[in-house]
């Protein structure tokens, strides 16, 4: 499949039963386009971490994806508490997650670093008390980074 495609998934905060389903659906869409498995894995992991952040911290949000022959772009926009210090949030191991989130295996402070690790480009914009927008791009034009 070639050409551009895009779509949106809606995310509900604290809906842990469905947490990850948007990333799972995105993975299926990427597989149908015949994108190499290693790139799909990077995109899926980055999307899943970003999706979990919305489910854990925000009231609601959306994941918008755009796939072109050159790139996969994913934008997650949420209505949430915002991130006061993005530099701190990018540090591996830094987390503000409550204990019940940690008991589910998340909130270990690896989410944003994991997104950065898998994406070719990551942009985070956040306003405390309003929400956060996380945008990442993965290039399809070359195999390495």
């Amino acid at each position: 499949m070639t050409g551009n495609s895009d779509g949106v998934f809606f995310l509900t905060g604290k809906d842990f039963a469905n947490a990850g389903s948007a990333s799972s659906n995105l993975k299926g869409i990427l597989e149908k386009r015949g994108i190499p498995a290693e790139i799909i894995r990077r995109a899926s992991i980055a999307a899943f971490e970003a999706e979990m952040n919305v489910i854990i911290y925000a009231v609601a949000g959306m994941m918008h994806y755009t796939i072109t022959p050159e790139t996969i772009k994913v934008v997650l926009q949420d209505m949430g508490p915002g991130i006061p210090d993005i530099g701190l949030a990018m540090q591996e191991g830094y987390s503000t997650a409550p204990d019940y989130i940690r008991e589910m295996g998340f909130g270990s402070g690896m989410g944003l670093p994991n997104i950065k690790r898998n994406a070719d480009k990551l942009t985070i914009n956040s306003v405390v008390g309003e929400g956060t927008t996380v945008e990442f791009v993965i290039s399809l034009e070359r195999s390495g980074r």
């Binding site: 039963a17 990850g20 990333s23 799972s24």
Partner: peptide
């Protein structure tokens, strides 16, 4: 359930 999601991605 997140364990299965994690395995999937």
């Amino acid at each position: 359930a997140q364990v299965v999601r994690t395995a999937e991605v």
